[in-house]
């Protein structure tokens, strides 16, 4: 279509030039400048101080904590997303549309409010906080709280990617497998999973990116304890507020690098497996 533009769609060259110019300038100013600045500020004093920032014990602890949180929250939401999508698309049950709406909820509310909900439930003065405290269980200002908040905020990614795709694919292949005598697990691993594997990977990718970068919800429940409950984004905040800009931008540049890899893999998946993805709108 790009090669033979219909005369009805041909815009005057000056208009094309102006519109492309506006778009490129806007993208450069709004998106690329902030990205470039992260790396420029991290390298402001050269490479040595940048690398030195990663030798810091608290920075290493923050990186480890972020990886741990993602390693718990992402598999949980991948399993939940699979189960929810399977339930919603293969069965009819009462309250189905309510469930779909509910899955979307974490995208519609402020992450700060998602965190607030956990403080109201499990905080020192929350609903269950005092009761859990007598059992020696603490949620708020601990890793447990961060895992809960991250899991809530990243809950929709896998489910949202799988539901439209599995709806489009329908039940025919599963029904055929059942007729031929395959049991539920065999059907899942030999029919359903191969059909949705790229979409699942796409959902997991977006989920991982958000799990590692989540700030608002985690900030509310973590308590910002250096080296203990500070994830990478929170560690960036701590360093920045201490005017330790090189170190703050060093950790930030690592997160930015990860964001670029995410974008690259996402673009690759979209280009290669377009018809095997629902390519949900990202949020």
């Amino acid at each position: 279509m790009k090669h033979a533009v219909s005369p009805a769609r041909r815009d005057p060259p000056w208009l094309v030039a102006i519109l492309i110019g506006i778009s490129v300038a806007y993208l450069a100013l709004v998106l690329l400048l902030p990205l470039f600045t992260v790396f420029a500020e991290a390298l402001r004093r050269g490479l040595a101080p940048l690398l030195q920032s990663f030798a810091d014990r608290d920075a290493i602890a923050a990186i480890q904590l972020t990886l741990l949180i993602a390693a718990i929250a992402v598999p949980l939401n991948a399993i939940f997303g699979l189960a929810a999508a399977w339930a919603v698309t293969k069965f009819e049950f009462w309250g189905k549309s309510a469930l779909i709406t509910l899955i979307d909820l974490p995208f519609s509310i402020s992450p700060v409010i998602s965190g607030l909900v956990y403080v109201l439930l499990y905080g020192a003065h929350g609903w269950f906080g005092p009761a859990l405290d007598t059992l020696g269980i603490k949620v708020i200002f601990t890793v447990t709280g961060i895992v809960l908040a991250t899991t809530l905020v990243t809950l929709p990614f896998v489910a949202r990617e799988l539901i439209p795709l599995m709806q489009a694919q329908g039940n025919d292949e599963e029904a055929a497998a059942a007729t031929l005598g395959a049991n539920g697990w065999r059907t899942f691993f030999q029919i359903t999973l191969p059909n949705i594997k790229w979409a699942l990977m796409y959902g997991v990718l977006l989920c991982t990116a958000r799990a590692m970068g989540e700030f608002g919800a985690v900030a509310v429940v973590s308590g910002h304890i250096r080296g203990k409950t500070a994830t990478m984004p929170l560690h960036v905040e701590i360093l920045y507020n201490e005017y330790n800009f090189v170190a703050a931008f060093a950790v930030a540049s690592l997160l930015a690098l990860f964001a670029l890899v995410t974008l690259a893999v996402k673009t690759f998946l979209e280009a290669q497996f377009a018809d095997e993805l629902a390519a949900q709108r990202w949020r």
């Binding site: 778009s23 490129v24 993208l27 998106l31 690329l32 400048l33 902030p34 990205l35 600045t37 992260v38 500020e41 977006l206 990116a209 590692m212 970068g213 989540e214 700030f215 608002g216 990478m232 984004p233 929170l234 960036v236 905040e237 920045y240 800009f245 703050a248 931008f249 930030a252 997160l255 930015a256 964001a259 670029l260 995410t262 974008l263 690259a264 996402k266 673009t267 990202w282 949020r283």
Partner: peptide, 27 residues
Amino acid sequence: GRRLLDAFVDLPFALPTAVAGISLAAI
């Protein structure tokens, strides 16, 4: 560069908000 720009449109979703925050403050 059209496809590259297209890919970069999603940057605000991929970049952690705190990273964008300190970068914008610096600019």
